[in-house]
């Protein structure tokens, strides 16, 4: 069996890529699609540097066999555009040092806030438990999550609509 073709939606665009069945999605996103925000640190699903959203939920692309992405919606930080409220909150608070873990943190917080628009500090810390930052920016990352919650709430207030859907 040779390489196979895998189809999924990446940041809103349908894509078709070549991959071997035992390759991880992380390798494919970097090699075939040129994405650099997904990064390998642990290779075990522990650190969160390779986080992407799969159908809106965070997963570790370093331990997701690429063919399992077939038909799914994959979101990486490249798909947020740069001015997403969570990204703005990270900039305002300066919640990063080397920036390597930052995309994973942003996606994890985005997913959290879509489910819980106003989490307390404890909930945020728990949600971030599996995203490691060796620079040790956790205090400011928690602040950024709180700030992002406020920015999102502000956006919802400004655009009241049925269901007040979270902004993505």
């Amino acid at each position: 069996m040779a390489a196979m073709e895998i189809h999924f939606t990446l940041n809103g665009q349908p894509v078709a890529v070549q991959a071997e069945p035992d390759e991880m999605l992380l390798e494919v996103l970097r090699r075939e699609l040129g994405l650099r925000s997904v990064r390998e640190t642990c290779g075990l699903g522990i650190c969160g540097a390779c986080t992407a959203l799969l159908n809106g939920q965070p997963i570790s692309t370093c331990i997701l066999l690429a063919p399992l992405a077939e038909g799914c919606e994959i979101t990486t930080v490249e798909g947020l555009g740069g001015h997403h409220p969570v990204q703005r909150a990270f900039e305002e608070v300066q919640a990063f040092q080397c920036g390597y873990c930052t995309p994973g943190m942003i996606l994890t917080i985005k997913a959290l806030l879509e489910e819980q628009p106003a989490p307390d500090e404890e909930t945020i810390r728990r949600a971030l438990g599996g995203n490691l930052c060796r620079c040790g920016c956790y205090l400011k990352i928690v602040q950024a999550a709180q700030r992002a919650a406020a920015l999102l709430a502000e956006e919802r207030r400004r655009q009241p609509g049925p269901g007040a859907a979270p902004v993505s």
């Binding site: 925000s37 997904v38 490249e78 947020l80 740069g82 990204q87 920036g99 995309p103 942003i106």
Partner: peptide
């Protein structure tokens, strides 16, 4: 221009 660390562009 957002910081390249929040966009993954670094």
């Amino acid at each position: 221009e957002p910081d390249p660390r929040v966009t993954g562009a670094i």
